[in-house]
Design a protein around this nucleic acid. Sequence first.
DNA 1: CCTCGTGGTTCGGTGAACGAACTTCGATCA
DNA 2: TGATCGAAGTTCGTTCACCGAACCACGAGG
Lengths: 173, 173
Amino acid sequence: MALPREYLDQECGLARSLEIVGERWTLLIIRDAFYGVSRFSDFRDHLGVPRAVLTERLNFLIDEGVLERTAGASGRDEYALTDKGKRLWPAMWALLSWGNDFYMPKGRKRRFTHNGCGGTLSADGSCDSCGAAPSPDELSIHPQTGKHRTAKVDPVSVALRSAHPLLTPIGTG
Amino acid sequence: MALPREYLDQECGLARSLEIVGERWTLLIIRDAFYGVSRFSDFRDHLGVPRAVLTERLNFLIDEGVLERTAGASGRDEYALTDKGKRLWPAMWALLSWGNDFYMPKGRKRRFTHNGCGGTLSADGSCDSCGAAPSPDELSIHPQTGKHRTAKVDPVSVALRSAHPLLTPIGTG
DNA sequence: CCTCGTGGTTCGGTGAACGAACTTCGATCA
DNA sequence: TGATCGAAGTTCGTTCACCGAACCACGAGG
């Protein structure tokens, strides 16, 4: 298997999860999919992951039903989260939020807002305005307010410098 | 660094989190710490992780302030989660819950209950009885109801076959 | 027909993880 | 006192996943 050398006989949902999304790069690929990245070369350019690894991860996630591949317009493959994949949002947000709290300086955090009411997503995943726990398709991501250390020029980095709803394909050209 | 070969210039809380807890075994070690595992040999026997890797992970997590080491009674080292480590609980639970939903058969899931009211922890991290979102020190873990495929005999596996509050050292003798 | 971009595959090198053997140290036992 | 034991590592040779660079097949555009 392409698993991270399985976590043998750990009879626990966490071990099962880590066998699917616990390998290097996998959660960053899924994060980018939430951000609206859909094309092989965009994942590749934004993350800097080796092609062979990206190929393997995408195929594995498709096999597991986390992503699905469709032949997009102009023949280019497109990758998108399935419902099962979208249900990784709470885990994504919890990890992202913990990293924000302990490792990101104030001005460098990306902000997520609730589309309906305009509130900001707080650490526990609820909207600080209406109190609901929005699903990812009700959220938008906002660029960091601080200066960028290294101004990356790949289409995804550029697109993420303006506000953008989650799960909506990023304009790449 | 002992990092998983850093996720370079990903200016994102998720990438930062993964540099701390994204390496193989790390989240399982933290899970066991939530379950009350505190001694080197118990982590080792329960997880089956190589000694050298366990040494490295524990030291790294201590350096990062996720765990702390204390000289326990009888001279044995003891490891416990810090407050920073405990704040990984929402991420832990979200991943565990996703794995439960998609990969664990009904009878094999461990149940978590809210100590005060006796309610069961639901997928979104709230108590299905009182509606609160309990912190880990308000929770207890309950054994799986189904038959065990392989009856492991290490002290931690044995202890987890009966109900036990989280973050409370497991009796190992 | 030639060129370019996309989405790969192949390949040699490197570093991390693996299991087994060995070491150190304090407590226990004869 | 000397022998034994277990806990917590360290060392070591092998294996395996990840890495970057090069190569390849295909379709679109000129």
